[in-house]
């Protein structure tokens, strides 16, 4: 292997790692705030990507109707969960979140989609369609289980993953999609061949990480989320509703998932079910990073991306074997350093 191959593999690993890092960040966030291991996060990647691809081709994406359906289900769930202590304001709020917002997005899409919108419009529209599904799902599936053990939340997330994958097949069909890149530029630097899209990915990933950092450090909502992550009860006592924190965390996770999908679909072929594999990498990074540490998750994501890239060069048939065996020593090191823990289940 010469230096140029090394460089190319490193570049590939970093681009993939950047996506894993975004997913890992949102998984960490969701877990910290709600204790949910968000297995269905990967579906948001696929949904975002395929919705974007459909919009760029001037089609009306099927996921639109899922948004409507989830809105109705969210309304029902919200009414049921808050039965007895609804106020006029809370009902109006609920209606706005579950009916008005999805309806507006659906209307906008129905108008814009046939016009074959530009790439940026298509991307924004896709984000608008996919992101709200995540908090709606939180309201429907997880909010009532706020005090359930982690295992039950995990299996609920698995159920969600199954249902969403099935829906993905219905909406997008079994075949893959690829979308036009934001930029057709190809930058050559020595042996490196940097597609414009790869630069977009790294730039947006970095920007998003900085934005998240600023959000957690500087805004009241961000601080509230961190407080909830540290101590749910405590956060509630000082007036931060856990439900609100959960909704925000899920919305961020949905947003990041959909964005990741939109970013990579110009570089590769995605199918309705490819989100899971990508999500699994993010999950891996999140856990190696400690499920609580944001910088740790980013580092681990890059590590996963690089291992994957190099393993696919050295022994492609055993790539998964190598990637997943390589993380075991890391896990061992992390848990030994961590010492025995009392898992509060």
């Amino acid at each position: 292997m010469d230096a140029s191959i090394l460089l190319i593999l490193a570049q590939d690993g970093i681009v993939n790692g950047a996506i894993y890092a975004l997913l890992a960040l949102s998984l960490v966030l969701v877990f910290a705030v709600t204790r949910v291991i968000y297995v269905a996060q990967g579906e948001f990647v696929a949904f975002g990507a395929l919705t974007y691809a459909a919009l760029t081709e001037g089609q009306t994406p099927g996921a639109l109707w899922l948004l409507g359906g989830l809105g109705l289900a969210g309304l029902a769930a919200g009414l049921w969960q808050g039965r007895g202590d609804h106020t006029r304001a809370s009902i109006l709020r609920l209606l706005a979140e579950t009916i008005l917002l999805p309806a507006a997005i659906i209307a906008a899409t129905l108008i814009l989609a046939p016009l074959k919108p530009g790439l940026i419009t298509a991307a924004l529209l896709s984000l608008a369609i996919i992101t709200p599904m995540s908090p709606l799902l939180y309201r429907i599936a997880f909010q009532p289980l706020a005090d359930a053990p982690v295992l039950v939340l995990l299996i609920t997330a698995v159920g969600l993953h199954l249902a969403l994958t099935g829906l993905g097949l219905v909406f997008f069909g079994p075949e893959g999609y690829r979308a036009p890149p934001f930029s057709d530029a190809m930058i050559t630097a020595g042996p490196l061949l940097l597609p414009g899209q790869a630069i977009w990915i790294i730039a947006i990933a970095l920007a998003l990480m900085l934005a998240l950092y600023a959000f957690f450090e500087a805004t009241l909502t961000g601080k509230a989320l961190r407080a909830t992550a540290v101590n749910r009860l405590g956060a509630r006592l000082v007036g931060i509703p856990t439900e609100q924190a959960g909704l925000i965390a899920f919305a961020l996770a949905g947003f990041i998932g959909a964005l990741s999908g939109i970013l990579i679909v110009p570089l590769t072929t995605l199918t309705y079910d490819s989100g899971f594999t990508i999500g699994l990498r993010g999950f891996t990074a999140a856990i190696i990073g400690g499920l609580g540490s944001y910088p740790g998750a980013v580092l681990a994501a890059l590590l996963v991306g690089l291992t994957e890239s190099f393993a696919s060069f050295w022994a492609s048939a055993f790539k998964e074997v190598i990637v997943f065996t390589a993380i075991i020593p890391v896990l061992l090191w992390r848990s030994l350093r961590h010492g025995p823990t009392e898992d509060d289940e």
């Binding site: 856990i287 997943f324 065996t325 993380i327 075991i328 896990l331 848990s335 823990t341």
Partner: peptide, 18 residues
């Protein structure tokens, strides 16, 4: 079994995929 909590769950994924 030396892994704790979520490390353990991921550990099982790791060797089972492998």
């Amino acid at each position: 079994v030396r892994l704790s909590g979520h490390y353990l769950a991921l550990g099982t994924i790791a060797w089972s995929v492998g």
